[in-house]
Amino acid sequence: MADGVALCGLPLGELTVLVVTALGYLAAGDVAFYYCQRWARRDGVMGHY
């Protein structure tokens, strides 16, 4: 994007790495949220500030 290249103008390999990386971060965040939510529910602190 720094050189003025549009997202659809990226080579297929770079676009694939971009999508896989984004999905990896999304999955890692979802797993972390799931386990933190389970932990909070088990300790009974959901909704407490």
Rank of each mutant, 00 (worst) to 15 (best):
M46H: 02
L15E: 08
Y34P: 00
P11W: 00
L18G: 02
A2N: 11
G44C: 10
D30G: 15
C36F: 10
A27V: 15
L23V: 14
G44N: 13
P11A: 03
L10G: 00
L18K: 03
G47W: 03
V45Q: 01
C8T: 07
P11S: 05
L18Y: 05
P11G: 05
Y34N: 10
T16H: 06
Y49E: 06
A32W: 08
G13T: 12
Y35R: 09
R41M: 12
G29T: 07
A27H: 06
G9K: 00
L10S: 00
G9L: 02
L26S: 06
A28V: 12
V20D: 05
A27C: 13
W39E: 15
A28M: 12
Y35I: 11
Y49P: 02
V45I: 15
L15T: 10
A28E: 04
V17G: 00
Y35A: 05
G9T: 01
L7H: 02
A2W: 01
G44K: 10
D30C: 14
L15C: 03
W39V: 06
Y35E: 14
G9H: 01
D30F: 15
L15K: 03
G4R: 04
V20A: 12
V17A: 14
G47M: 07
F33M: 12
M1K: 03
E14M: 06
A6L: 15
T21W: 06
M46Y: 00
F33G: 05
L18F: 11
L23Y: 06
D30A: 15
G13W: 09
Y35F: 15
R41T: 13
R38M: 10
G47T: 10
R41P: 01
A40F: 04
M1V: 09
Y49L: 14
V17L: 11
G24A: 11
C8E: 08
V19M: 12
A2M: 08
G24W: 04
H48S: 11
V5S: 08
G4C: 02
A2S: 13
G13Y: 02
C36T: 09
L26M: 11
C8M: 00
M46N: 01
D30R: 05
L10R: 02
